[in-house]
Design a protein around this nucleic acid. Structure first.
Lengths: 208, 208
DNA sequence: GTATCTTTTCAACGTCCGTTGAAACAAGCG
DNA sequence: CGCTTGTTTCAACGGACGTTGAAAAGATAC
């Protein structure tokens, strides 16, 4: 399956590249990180293969071990959150309560739909079989984002509220990007923000 | 990883079972289905191995091929929905609009928390890397359950409403059973029905 | 009792995976 | 230039996986 990239056979360097150290300036570490982000997001941790990532980066699979110690290290390095969550939470809190839920949805969709931001989706795709991903998701929801947000609002049951918000956001990511269910998969961010924003608003601010 | 079952080595039948046909009455086909349900729910399609399933069922891995034609066939046979969705939809519609959202949440949690009903969770766990599972989820949401429900209510944008409900339900399953995020993972069904029910209610009945 | 069919186990095949070790090559330094 | 250091490719290893084919043995029909 997944017979899209050449994978195992050659990915032949166009008869040009020889062995040994390449001329400086070509940063293979960065190339690996970029390729890893793309492949992990598409396939999840288990589905992605080191050979496929290295092939997309145009280098040998052994480079993964050399630069990151192995597949796990590459995953951890590639799936770092691109935006500082502290800044994000402050931004949400500073804008006031009005329309908070819609702003959160809009922000998530903006990050996810952009090129760089698929990290969370890669983690979500990996969660099923990769305990480290499950831990990352838990900590992201309870500690990094929604937990801090609910606590910043100074309301009761912040952990439960964070978990509820997490359930709606994770579900949105699953249906839009993994399951690709229409019409939600192609809906524009404004429509989704209007539809789903009030849900988060209620989870965060109203009485449970 | 996942070094819980004996797996590859022996799973030695206690020096008792010999070759050849076993005495009738022991239905190995049913044993395989039970074991497959458990392992697919725990590990997802890719994570589950034919050897682990056969080991749990107490038979040889070759039986999977003999009875189901292969791993795919076993998955399809094991992940059939245990309750008739037509009956379910009729039941929801018959009870009226009042508290509909809460009833749906309660029904899902009841099925999921029971022994037999983890099929949907197995599918959700497999969705990331298994296109057949993604298709099953799409059809379940749009055609089998929420789509039919929204159409039965005779309201506008039934597809979008079904997808929104699907996003919340899939997210609930992910957070409660896969990511296992507290306090939601251990919350009792009543609490969750009160918290999440209104979300479905709004997605199904109120203006978007 | 003999022959036939079905079920089951066993051993093995081929494939793909992550990882490893050594060799080849470039760059920096004396 | 010779030596050292860091980077890259190559070939291979060991393991796990799904699947297969043949042999063994109970069940069934005659």
């Amino acid at each position: 399956m997944t017979a899209d990239t050449a994978d195992t056979a050659d990915t032949g360097p166009p008869a040009g590249r020889r062995r040994g150290r390449r001329p400086a300036g070509e940063d293979t570490r960065a190339a690996l990180l970029d390729a890893a982000r793309a492949v992990f997001v598409e396939q999840g941790f288990d589905g992605a293969t080191v050979r496929a990532i290295a092939g997309r980066a145009g280098v040998d699979a052994a480079m993964v071990n050399h630069w990151f110690g192995g597949k796990e290290g590459l995953f951890a390095a590639a799936m770092q959150i691109p935006v500082d969550p502290t800044v994000l939470v402050d931004e949400f809190l500073a804008s006031g309560l009005d329309g908070l839920g819609e702003r959160i949805v809009r922000r998530f969709l903006g990050v996810w739909d952009s090129t760089r931001g698929g990290a969370l989706i890669g983690v979500i795709r990996s969660v099923s079989s990769h305990e480290q991903s499950a831990r990352m998701m838990r900590e992201f929801i309870t500690k990094v984002l929604f937990g801090r947000l609910a606590r910043g609002l100074g309301i009761d049951q912040p952990d439960m509220r964070a978990a509820l918000c997490g359930s709606q956001i994770v579900g949105l990511a699953m249906v839009r990007y993994v399951i690709r269910l229409e019409p939600l998969a192609s809906a524009d961010p404004d429509t989704l923000a209007e539809a789903i924003g009030p849900t988060l608003q209620r989870y965060l601010t109203e009485k449970l």
